[in-house]
Design a binder for these strands. Structure first.
Length: 213
DNA sequence: CTAGTGATTCCCT
DNA sequence: GGGAATCACTAGC
């Protein structure tokens, strides 16, 4: 059974629109990760929008740095960042170039290559948890720093691609506050998810932490 | 189910 | 030096 017979990527101009249009339009799309060990395909069920301009929650808010450089580049590319000393999370960059907007891929359902994903996510109690959360998603797909800057709209022999496929029906899309975002950036209801989908991560507000002595 | 906390490294002030 | 777009685990309801 081939879950993803059509490997046509989304056209780059899909991402050359306001990030608040792109984010909900990504739900239901298939992310195809090709590894030496085999393919993994994931259906997106939860995303968050980050605007490079005037969004305190965005990594690009304080301007261009070596870390966020990819966000300022061409749309349709993958921005991978390292966080909390342990985890990677991945975004798809939106246009126009220089605005540094991006969509964080927060959760999804593994529809192909679950055996491989399970070997990377040994603590998952069931398959719904394999990619339930942004760092879990990246871990399940084997995505790390090495894929930062990858073009997700390219054809051919690519490690990571976002397929055209079909979007989730608009009447099944919900939105609300972003998860884990602190301060002023928390006010925007820029988290989008597929209603009643068991792979969507639970909402948790940002918790300020005191450093251990 | 919710709430709290330790883990661990990098980035930016 | 302080905190981070998180996860795993525990306690308690």
């Amino acid at each position: 059974m081939i879950a993803t017979p059509d490997r046509t990527p989304l056209p780059r101009n899909f991402f050359d629109r306001p990030v608040l249009e792109v984010a909900p339009d990504l739900l239901g799309r298939i992310l195809l990760r090709t590894t030496p060990d085999g393919p993994i395909a994931l259906r997106l069920t939860e995303v968050e929008a980050y605007d490079g301009q005037n969004d305190p929650g965005s990594h690009a808010f304080r301007g261009r740095t070596t870390r966020n450089e990819v966000m300022f580049g061409a749309p349709g590319h993958v921005y991978v960042y390292f966080t909390y000393g342990m985890w990677f999370c991945m975004n798809l960059v939106c246009g126009p170039e220089g605005r540094a907007s991006a969509v964080l891929l927060r959760a999804g359902e593994i529809i192909e290559g679950a055996e491989l994903a399970r070997t990377r996510r040994l603590s998952a109690r069931n398959d719904k948890e394999l990619a339930k959360g942004p760092a879990r998603l990246a871990t399940a797909l084997g995505v790390d720093r090495a894929l930062n800057g990858t073009d997700a709209c390219a054809t051919g022999d690519t490690p990571l691609r976002i397929l055209a496929g079909t979007r989730a029906p608009s009447d099944q899309v919900r939105n609300g506050p972003r998860t884990g975002v602190s301060g002023e950036g928390a006010v925007h209801p820029w988290r989008y998810w597929v209603d009643n989908d068991p792979t969507v991560s639970p909402y948790r507000a940002h918790m300020p932490r005191r450093r251990r002595s």
